[in-house]
Design a protein around this nucleic acid. Structure first.
Length: 604
DNA sequence: GATGACTGCCC
DNA sequence: ATTCTGC
DNA sequence: GCAGAATGGGCAGTCATC
């Protein structure tokens, strides 16, 4: 069978990396898609997305991330792992480091090399194809059991040995899922559109099909073999997940009416796990937000949904865990104990769940995506309330109310905070269809933490830093932050922070931190969990303010360790950097007792 | 058999 | 998850 | 405003190591 040389891909990827212009990227992709063998196009697309199969297929992940990749690189280059780690940290990622590593690597004398029967280059040209790269990664993914990690390292290092610098770079980035070429789903769809329909205008059509058949590899293949015509008979199928609609963020109440007009529907936003449930006759499948199959984790939901008196349906909601004693909703952290493979029966009793439903996408062979929101909601309510009339079930309806004034909205928002994170705000106009795949502003989310006035920011001292990756390469990507513990006179870690840091903040790193770097943990800093040890310790001096959604109990962070719970400290959920506080010194920062206060207040 | 490093997937 | 940035 | 790419806490599962 004819195969496409992986060098063709490398050439295109190099070009993509160099050009920032989206239109040019699409053009490069178009050429690449036309050039590869049709039998390899799907594989190329998967590789470009950093996957081997669409999410909904129950296939194992590659199982290699940075640490294991480093071991493979070490084996391939005969450099030690510390050396490689250092290069990666300096350069800002495996991809950028690979050039240097190739320059420094120690050649291995093989018999072939020794006798000169085959030059390395010849070997590379013969062997490296999209097919070979894909099938090697696939083989790696399927290895399991004792000794499998070593085998993975072995296979990867062999693949890298057969590779040129450029090939190695992109193979590694593919495995790590950080291709960093500025091409992802949407750009690939654009590229496919131009490559196989000669027009950019078909990208909406392709995207629509993709949203109900989330397998871009197959979509690409169909397009290359049959053109647009081939996609026409793709329809919603029970058992194939639909890309989920997501909410854009609303900052203020004013925002909401500006977007929605003078009327909108508000639903409680439950802090749990999003699920899309498919039922066809006696078969039920559950999909996670990222269209992974999570059916086996929730047998209680499956058996209940099975009993719904309809032939087929697709419904959506939020799974939450319920406290057996109080009947109240448990925290997200607690729910996560249900995401398991073993002891499911035991945990089903300890962590019973409820499903708060908010949408229906399909009913008895009928596609409801294009029905307006209120109609879908009514259809859903009919099914669920009728069913629950006979006997109460764990299927609930998300608390919802249509509001038409700011006052009403505010009240409902306040109400929601007693058991939820905030509200989802949904358009009720005639065009309020279910937009699979997150587009537009028909859904907004409003959380307490978006209102800086409603939630306290904290001032933390920076005690360490981590080297950045990608566009943060060559500088710090994140910091380890600490609060002050008065009783023990120590600074104790409470979170890392990387999100929210702007280019202008980064510019000031040298000035702020150059003289603070330490080889060892500073005397006045409490111990830190092994996995949180920063690349560079920093003398506690620089204070920053940050905001998070809530305080959680952490097995890793040391703030207030053992204070609220044995072997647990406090941590901040969703921390984001707000800015430097040069007016504050380390004696002014947030203390453990203040964190404890916040924690006690939030657990209502 | 216990522990811990690492990974992937939820948010 | 949140946030920033280039297009 | 879109699309992509930086970055977070914390859970279970797997495999390596002790």
């Amino acid at each position: 069978m004819k195969m496409t040389s992986f060098k063709t891909v490398v050439k295109a990827f190099n070009k993509l990396e160099e050009t920032p212009a989206t239109l040019e990227k699409i053009d490069i992709l178009k050429d690449l898609f036309r050039e590869v063998e049709s039998s390899e196009l799907d594989k190329l697309i998967y590789l470009a997305l950093g996957i081997l199969y669409p999410n909904y297929m129950a296939e194992p992940p590659i199982g290699i991330a940075e640490k294991v990749a480093i071991k493979a690189i070490a084996k391939m280059s005969r450099l030690n792992t510390t050396k490689i780690e250092n290069i990666i940290n300096e350069k800002g990622g495996v991809g950028k480091a690979i050039g240097t590593i190739f320059e420094q690597k120690k050649e291995i004398k093989t018999l072939d090399n020794f006798f000169g029967s085959k030059t390395k280059e010849q070997e590379k040209i013969e062997l490296q194809s999209i097919d070979l790269v894909y099938s090697t990664l696939d083989e790696i993914a399927h290895l399991k059991g004792k000794g499998s990690t070593l085998k993975k390292i072995d296979l990867l290092s062999n693949l890298l040995l057969k590779s040129t610098k450029g090939e190695a770079k992109y193979i590694l980035r593919t495995i790590l899922g950080t291709l960093r070429l500025g091409i992802a789903e949407m750009t690939i769809i654009n590229g496919l559109s131009v490559a196989f329909t000669d027009s950019k205008d078909n990208k909406e059509f392709i995207e629509k099909k993709y949203n109900i058949f989330p397998d871009l590899g197959k979509i690409g293949k169909i397009l290359s073999e049959k053109g647009l015509e081939g996609l026409k008979d793709i329809n919603i199928r029970v058992g194939i997940p639909i890309k989920m609609m997501l909410g854009q963020r609303a900052k203020t109440f004013e925002d909401i009416f500006e977007r929605m007009g003078n009327e909108c529907a508000c639903e409680y936003k439950y802090d749990g796990e999003r699920v899309q449930a498919h039922k066809n006759k006696n078969k039920v499948i559950l999909f996670s937000r990222n269209t992974e199959d999570i059916t086996s984790m929730y047998p209680d939901l499956v058996s209940t949904i099975k009993k719904l008196p309809v032939d087929s349906l697709i419904i959506e909601g939020e799974i939450v865990a319920i406290d057996v004693e109080t009947g109240r909703i448990k925290s997200f952290q607690e729910l996560m104990k249900r995401r398991r493979k073993y002891d499911i029966d035991k945990f089903m009793k300890e962590y019973p769940v409820e499903l708060y439903l908010f949408d229906i996408l399909y009913l008895n062979e009928k596609n409801l995506l294009n029905e307006p929101y209120l109609k879908r909601r009514k259809t859903l309510e009919d099914i669920i309330t009728t069913y629950n009339e006979k006997q109460d079930s764990i299927l609930k309806l998300a608390t919802q109310r249509v509001v038409n004034s700011k006052q009403e909205l505010k009240e409902f928002f306040e109400d929601s905070l007693t058991e939820c994170e905030g509200l989802m705000i949904k358009s009720v106009n005639k065009k309020s269809v279910y937009q699979a795949g997150n587009r537009g502003y028909l859904w907004l989310k409003l959380k307490k933490s978006y209102h800086s006035k409603m939630i306290d920011s904290v001032d933390l001292v920076i005690i360490g830093a981590y080297s950045g990756r990608g566009r943060r390469g060559g500088t710090y990507g994140a910091f380890l932050c600490a609060v002050y513990n008065k009783d023990e006179d120590k600074f104790q870690s409470i979170c890392k922070v990387g999100s929210g840091i702007k280019d202008e903040d980064i510019e000031r790193f040298p000035e702020l931190f150059n003289n603070l770097e330490m080889d060892n943990i500073p005397m006045n800093v409490d111990t830190v969990a092994e996995k949180l040890v920063p690349d560079v310790w920093l003398q506690p001096k620089i204070v920053c303010s940050l905001i998070g959604d809530e305080i959680t109990l952490s097995p890793d962070h040391r703030a207030g360790y053992n204070l609220k719970k044995e072997s647990a400290g406090f941590a901040i959920r969703f921390p984001r950097f707000l800015g430097w506080r040069e007016d504050k010194s380390i004696s002014d920062i947030t203390t453990v007792s203040e964190i404890l206060d916040i924690y006690d207040k939030q657990t209502k």
